[in-house]
Design a binder for these strands. Structure first.
Lengths: 338, 338
DNA sequence: TCGTGTCTTGAGAGCGCTCTCAGGCCGATT
DNA sequence: AATCGGCCTGAGAGCGCTCTCAAGACACGA
């Protein structure tokens, strides 16, 4: 027995069955206080008996709210669809928070600014969602600013590269990177290289900046190779680095995946870790405990970033003022690679 | 200048500006044919000029369609939120297909059957989505059957453990596992063990079944340890296996992550791969090319599974009959570990 | 006793859209 | 020339809900 479309009970049915007006039934369903207890119960019973579920479309139509939030991610981002489970962790955080607020999560992937880009913009500005979370932006993506300007509450994960008022949540990448490099320096390493992340993403840029600044403080020369956060790129960059400076004795990689790749490359080049070369990663992904040797890395609370960014959009949609920048703490997790 | 809620242009505005009736404007917007070309152009211009975007809520209210599909995943599943990027790949496939059909993807995570379980059920049966995709089910989850019975088009990824009519898309896990084990046997391995996946999921069960059947064909004894698809569990299981049978010369792991864990454990136990022990994985994740040695594994087209499952729900929502079972091809990718 | 204020309930007007139905126009047919 | 049929277009009725507004009920003080 299929209960399709038109057969579903309406508020009118509930009201009728409870012997009250539609308005009162609505009040009960929406938890308004000013309803007499015995009437409230009658309505609740009717709801139960009929298996009534409010029609979201009808509700949205009048309230102008959709109770859903868009999560926009670049499909091209290596962090999203590689062996880096960053994506999953963020989604999870967002999902947890939205669920708690009884909001829906609408997931939108965008390719490199093309038709799908417009689609997201149209969709979001079209009032289909109450707000949007944007993460993994590459380059100077105009999307956040556009949506924001169109009146859609937007919060980003990661600093925007464009000059923009759009609030974001992140860790202090520069500072965290600096701490990692200092650890290397403090433990006696002299020639510290870095495998930087993509230079069109704030996380990539800022971590490199942190590395550079720490090296400068110690009056040391920077040795840089650039990867794209993936294992493969990490391995490749490590080989380059080794070719550039066979004497290097430490490496700071801007992601755990790249660090893992570097570990492999080092092994292949006959270098022992940490004896010959110390390695520090970034993220503290689950697999960092299981690399050989276990990876010393900068922990960032990825799921928490997801939660926080979600909480911020929710506050924004509720009309609250929010912090334009919110930085979550990182922590250097010392294992055996450095 | 914020363009919020009530300020957005309506179809009425478009009609007015174009000098036609709302009905005609609607016809143009929805691509109906029976509109005179010059009128059509006028409407299109008005749409453009005003930046009109249809109000989905209003549309849904009358059409009883929402143009969105729920993707339901168990939050507890290790495949979803571990270092296994299976989740991301499936989502991507689903997303690609839905986008092509101009449908939205609503992501819902469910915890172990609890309140969130009911929430999903209420939401989906409440007509908020046109259909649902369910994946990573554990045990005898009643959700697919319930939704289906309530008239919601449902397609699963993976065979249901309950007796059920709900259609699904998968690979032939049993057969693929058999092929993997045969490869091991054919290359001269005698004592072939397996690291099975969780035995409350069809993928785990069926792959073990395939292993067993291949071993039986060759009149060999099964050597089994069970993991949960994660790296850690793979390493642990490998150690157990080695303790159980120090002579074993091959291992078939039911996921690449577990195979990677096994590789590590083998190394730690001083076994060379593939010289002493051959290893075959399952999935062909990106990292399988970069393990040491590169992993021989059963490729399953994960993104394609996502696409296919999405396509099937769409067909279902369109009222078409679909295949109750759709099995995608797998392929043994031979690298260096076996 | 009546007036006043408070609290609960019901009536009804839309929210923006789709879709049916009827009317108007025009060319074709008898 | 009159009628018919076909094709476009417009009018208007809802879809299911929320929310404003007013009316009714009741208690209390004057």
């Amino acid at each position: 027995m299929v209960m399709s479309g038109r057969d579903r009970p309406t508020l009118e049915n509930v009201a009728q069955r409870a012997g009250v007006s539609r308005a009162t039934a609505s009040r009960v369903v929406n938890g308004s206080t000013s309803v007499a207890p015995h009437i409230r119960d009658k309505v609740l019973n009717a709801v139960d008996a009929l298996g009534y579920v409010p029609n979201q479309a009808a509700r949205s139509l009048v309230t102008q709210r959709t109770d859903s939030i868009a999560l926009v991610a670049s499909e091209t981002t290596s962090r999203v669809f590689s062996d880096d489970p960053f994506f999953a962790a963020v989604i999870r955080g967002v999902s947890l928070e939205l669920e708690a607020a009884d909001k829906q999560l609408v997931l939108m992937m965008v390719g490199p600014s093309g038709p799908s880009h417009d689609r997201v913009e149209r969709y979001a500005t079209g009032g289909h969602v109450d707000g949007a979370i944007i993460f993994s932006m590459h380059g100077a993506d105009p999307l956040p600013e556009r949506l924001s300007r169109a009146g859609v509450p937007v919060v980003c994960n990661g600093r925007l590269l464009t000059q923009s008022q759009v609030p974001y949540v992140d860790v202090d990448n520069e500072d965290a990177a600096r701490a990692a490099v200092h650890h290397l320096l403090d433990t006696g390493r002299r020639r510290v290289a870095t495998i930087a992340g993509p230079q069109d993403m704030s996380a990539g840029i800022d971590r490199l900046k942190g590395y550079r600044s720490a090296m400068q403080d110690a009056s040391r020369r920077s040795i840089v190779a650039v990867g794209d956060f993936t294992r493969q790129s990490g391995a490749l960059a490590m080989s380059q680095l080794l070719a550039d400076d066979p004497q290097l004795d430490a490496v700071f990689a801007a992601s755990d995946a790249m660090a893992d790749g570097a570990l492999r490359a080092l092994r292949q080049h006959g270098r022992r870790v940490p004896d010959d070369v110390a390695v520090v990663g970034f993220d503290d992904m689950e697999f960092a405990r299981d690399t050989e040797p276990p990876l010393t890395t900068v922990r960032q609370p990825i799921t928490d970033i997801g939660r926080t960014v979600a909480r911020q959009v929710l506050r924004l949609t509720a009309g609250e003022q929010i912090e334009p920048v919110l930085l979550l703490p990182t922590e250097l997790v010392k294992r055996e690679s450095a």
